[in-house]
Amino acid sequence: MDVFDEFTSRIENPSNRERMEEVLRWVAVQFPNLGTKIAWNQPMFTDHDTFIIGFSVAKQHMSVAPERAAIARFSDEIVRVGYDHTDQLFRMKWNLPVDYDLLGRIIAFNIEDKADCTTFWRK
């Protein structure tokens, strides 16, 4: 997880930094076969060099970007747990709990759905 240290060290709010570190650690532990990298100034997890999920930080929330197909698949659940979303990402407000079950299912969906993908992003 050292690859994310520089990114997380720039998060000014200590509790937000801890939350981001916790989420990144959780993903790494739950999905140990995923690669890690920083691209477009955000931590990302990849599988066979294809994008699986990325994270970014804003003042009020952590953004989670699993691509459009995953947002479409899990839209109702994302809203039901209290997060809002666009067609490319969803936002977890810092004061809301992380729904790790939902996050894990989104990641697992992307791994399975992109198993034969030969590009970084879905076409």
Score class of each variant (00 low, 15 high):
113 D>W: 08
4 F>N: 07
120 F>V: 13
71 I>H: 09
7 F>P: 04
23 V>S: 04
19 R>K: 15
38 I>L: 05
7 F>G: 06
81 V>S: 09
115 A>V: 08
48 H>C: 08
79 V>F: 11
107 I>H: 02
21 E>Y: 01
5 D>Y: 10
51 F>C: 01
55 F>H: 09
112 E>C: 03
12 E>H: 12
30 Q>S: 11
102 L>P: 05
50 T>G: 08
13 N>H: 10
19 R>G: 03
18 E>K: 13
76 D>W: 08
98 V>H: 06
41 N>D: 11
55 F>S: 04
53 I>L: 07
106 I>T: 04
54 G>P: 10
52 I>N: 07
65 A>L: 13
19 R>T: 14
10 R>N: 12
113 D>N: 13
48 H>E: 11
80 R>S: 14
29 V>H: 09
48 H>Q: 12
108 A>P: 00
88 Q>M: 11
57 V>H: 11
34 L>N: 02
55 F>G: 04
73 R>N: 08
92 M>Q: 14
37 K>T: 10
37 K>V: 00
113 D>R: 13
13 N>F: 07
123 K>S: 14
27 V>S: 02
46 T>C: 05
4 F>D: 06
91 R>T: 01
99 D>Y: 05
122 R>K: 13
4 F>V: 03
91 R>G: 01
8 T>Y: 04
101 D>R: 07
